[in-house]
Nucleic acid binder design. Structure first.
Lengths: 381, 381
DNA sequence: AAAAAAAGTGTGTGCGAACACACATATTGT
DNA sequence: ACAATATGTGTGTTCGCACACACTTTTTTT
């Protein structure tokens, strides 16, 4: 067992003993071949399912692989296989500083890192800014004969349509950012928007509960295209659920607005002013990544106690607003890491042939002025 | 440049073009040898600084390596080098469910993962529960001739003393969890306790500011040994700084208590009751990982509006209390990931010979009932 | 029954780096 | 001057796996 005086846990040391044992009898395909009474070529054939192998031999080898818990040496495997992994990447188009830059940076981190380690990875990028372009871009990837696809879903209809083709052509794909339930994806890497909304609700509730009288709360969905804001609405739902669950309707009044983000300008002061007509809210929840667009207007228009302002995503513009305290909190779901993990998962699945989790949910992080990371936070790894 | 219609960023595509180019002319030591007019053996010698190489040849090779930006193929390197990496691990002893289990789990994650990839890693564990044992345990690692050491510092005096020996014997070491400024460590992987304290202060401030009259706030340092709570005090300092910076002393009254954690029992109801004599606080900040120990007492003793309760670390006992809402918020600094990164950094430094960051600060995460991860969250990777 | 095709199997080479060994040349000692 | 050492340098083997090729045996075809 374990000899450490204070190691009552006993889990720890035992697990480690296991780990050590595991690597010591590190078995190779040669070992398997010997035990099965055949050559390494044959073992190779059953492992990769190529060429012809007599049924009884195949079964014997398979049994031995299972029995010995054979795990191929990844280093040798990568070293020997000279083929390059072509990754299709299908994401919304973006400008610098926008949300979608983050997953893209994560993808780059991963490719950089793994290229440096002898892996041959060739990314093929396709960007879309409408459901129609989503489809043509996605089909282009098929035509380019990529080995796998990393994508974020567009509209429900277009996504299922594209995925149908991928499925038919046996192209593995990974969904990042938002999930569409039931798709035959290798994995989903992203977040739970309802949970996000509920977390924000908790923050706002705790921070406004001691205010006397009825509290006015806004939810603001600011989006480039009003028709593709599924994730925003899901967050709003989660937000509402929290208050409903706690039966706080009597103490709170809610107003929800959908605003259009018209490029550089965003909602103008006048638009915001119009909303303020009904009264100054005690808290505002901007469901997308565009809090920074209204922070300035609010500061200008509201001279009394300014409302609590909460938004999403660690993009530069938002981080600045948190630093000068015109935005109070930012929620984020490790956007950059999502991209990183997507590439890594592809490598693990397609090269290492490991099994990867069907659902990889990111942690939900809350940032405020005191814990916001420095600007050029390289989060690779 | 970039042909994507909506890719205004231009960063992205260019960077990728670079990445692709890089791996295509992937140079090997053979290439260097040819260009330098010598054999691969000689190149090998200058890379590893072993054997004798004529000064002019050495410089030529070095120049070519630099010019071509040679990056060794990690897969080949690991495959060829059969030596096992022996890692000394020097951490406080712990029981199951305590804070130190988390970094240990992270260490295990990493060793598991890398063992599975053909790396030979042998961990040697030493646990300590006092500064004296820290020293003897640390020296034992030296005697066991480990290749590198992962450790969390004990007292200032003992740590610098031990590190002196490590330095003299040229043993690289990585500090996790808490930093001691100025030590010649390979890297520090952990958190900034002052920042943590300030973040908590922000939360408590925002959540109590609308309460009328003077607010009473507690800080509770609950520790096993009252003499080794440096990190707790640093958090308390950060906490205080926030209120000082904002000049909120007139609206807030602060009381700080140091309590001893006597094993299973923790602070008793009676002890907590004694503290309550001076009045019921509006918020309580427990600076260590033991909020759960007073949550029950508080619930029993306070029947009116219960105080806001904030603590640290995602240990099971705390997570339960967050789920039943007797603890409001938990702060954590990715304890498990710290262990993971420590092992990974050792591998990158000692096997891959990469340079690693001197300071790897973890993100500071805020958890509440709505965003707390599920219990058996495997966070490897 | 002979030829052709298919099924089944073993050997050999290469991936890129690490390291041991053998060998060449230069420097020193006696 | 010759051995003894020190200083350089090149070759060959190995790691575990992928994949091409050659080969034997069996089955099918005509």
């Amino acid at each position: 067992m374990c000899e450490h005086t204070y190691c009552h846990s006993s889990v720890f040391c035992c697990i480690f003993a296991l780990a050590v044992e595991q690597h010591q009898n590190h078995i190779r395909i040669k070992d398997i071949a010997e035990k099965a009474g055949c050559s390494i070529g044959t073992v190779d054939r059953v492992i990769h399912n190529r060429g012809k192998v007599a049924e009884p031999v195949k079964n014997r080898v398979l049994a031995i692989i299972d029995e010995l818990d054979y795990r191929p040496n990844v280093n040798a495997r990568v070293l020997a296989s000279k083929k390059t992994l072509t990754l299709g990447i299908l994401l919304p188009s973006y400008r610098r500083g926008e949300y979608w830059e983050l997953p893209n940076l994560g993808i780059r981190d991963a490719i950089d890192r793994y290229s440096g380690q002898g892996y041959q990875i060739r990314p093929v990028h396709e960007l879309y800014n409408s459901p129609e372009k989503f489809h043509t871009a996605g089909m282009k990837l098929l035509a380019e004969n990529v080995d796998g696809i990393i994508m974020s879903p567009s509209s429900y209809k277009e996504t299922t349509r594209l995925v149908r083709y991928y499925f038919q052509h046996n192209k593995p794909f990974i969904l990042i950012d938002s999930d569409i339930y039931g798709l035959p994806s290798l994995s989903f890497i992203g977040k739970d928007p309802v949970q996000s909304g509920m977390t924000v609700a908790r923050l706002i509730h705790q921070m406004t509960r001691h205010i006397g009288g009825e509290k006015l709360i806004w939810t603001l969905n600011i989006s480039k295209h009003l028709d593709q804001m599924y994730a925003l609405l899901a967050r709003e739902s989660g937000f509402m659920s929290y208050f409903a669950d706690k039966q706080l309707q009597d103490h709170y009044r809610f107003r929800a607005f959908d605003l259009e983000d018209r490029g550089q300008q965003g909602p103008t002061d006048r638009e915001v002013e119009a909303l303020l007509g009904e009264g100054i809210p005690h808290a505002i929840y901007v469901t997308g990544s565009r809090v920074f667009k209204i922070a300035r207007s609010l500061r200008k228009l509201i001279t009394t106690e300014k409302p609590l302002l909460i938004g999403h995503d660690l993009i530069r513009a938002n981080m600045e607003k948190v630093r000068d305290e015109s935005v109070d909190f930012l929620i984020e779901e490790e956007a950059r890491r999502q991209g990183y993990l997507a590439v890594e998962s592809m490598i693990r699945s397609l090269i290492h042939k490991e099994k990867i989790g069907k659902k990889q949910l990111m942690n939900l992080m809350i940032y405020t002025r005191e814990n916001i990371p420095p600007d050029s936070a390289e989060q690779g790894g």
